[in-house]
Nucleic acid binder design. Structure first.
Lengths: 122, 122
DNA sequence: TTATCATATGAGCAATAGTTCATATATAAA
DNA sequence: TTTATATATGAACTATTGCTCATATGATAA
């Protein structure tokens, strides 16, 4: 991996010791990919709004649809993405399906992210 | 907003009180969009690896390029995305540009995200 | 100055994502 | 059973994203 320097830059700039030391401590490529995947799922306005709502209360698809003011199909599609990522869970209640958050880490992430956004505004 | 129920579902399913109460506490649409934008920036494997590296040390573009084993142009493009989001900052040092993390919230987010991924594996 | 090196950037392209529409499934009521 | 309701899903379309290639910019050295 370290050998493909042709594409990057010349000897003078490249610092093998620093690069090696950093590399040793970095996440393996598999975990970094999973982490990116998690953030990618959180990186959509519709899904954030869904989570923001579910953070307040367990809700059925219908109420989420009304709340977001969008297509039921679109909401269901996004709920599937969140379910696949195990960020929300669902349970049947009669004809309805009730959704709620599946993990407390997620609300922590959302809270910390909001904090960051708020800081940036200053 | 609450009136476009035609697209969603019938009277029986819709719960106006719950929806209203949830809506009142939700993030405004502007902040939720900014929050999604932040997560979107973090939701890419290349950018996560860059942050993971910068978390360990300030690095020039050339070293990052060697570290990630990819095109210098690709790295510069992603650094621009991170810079625009004010997640990393840069300073000139001779011909080189040195990058580092711009905000301590970010490492917190990455750490919390990693925690979540680790938990999911169990 | 000119040449070289490190980085940035615009255009173009392929892959992916989010939405809508139509329809399928599942539960309940008549 | 038949009908209606709530949700899920596949296909199609458009918009966005990340990469590559070529080139521009900016700084140092000769």
């Amino acid at each position: 991996m370290l050998e493909n320097r042709e594409d990057s830059c010349q000897e003078q700039c490249f610092h093998p010791e620093v690069v090696e030391s950093v590399r040793r401590n970095m996440l393996g490529s598999v975990p970094s990919d999973e982490l990116a995947q998690l953030f990618k799922v959180l990186g959509d306005n519709t899904r954030i709004r869904i989570l923001d709502a579910l953070f307040r209360s367990e809700l059925c698809v219908c109420d989420l649809t009304a709340l977001l003011g969008m297509n039921q199909s679109a909401v269901s599609h996004q709920l599937r993405v969140l379910r696949d990522a195990r960020i929300v869970k669902s349970r049947k209640y009669g004809k309805k399906v009730l959704y709620s958050l599946d993990d407390e880490h997620i609300s922590g992430l959302v809270r910390m992210g909001s904090e960051h956004v708020r800081e940036l505004k200053k």
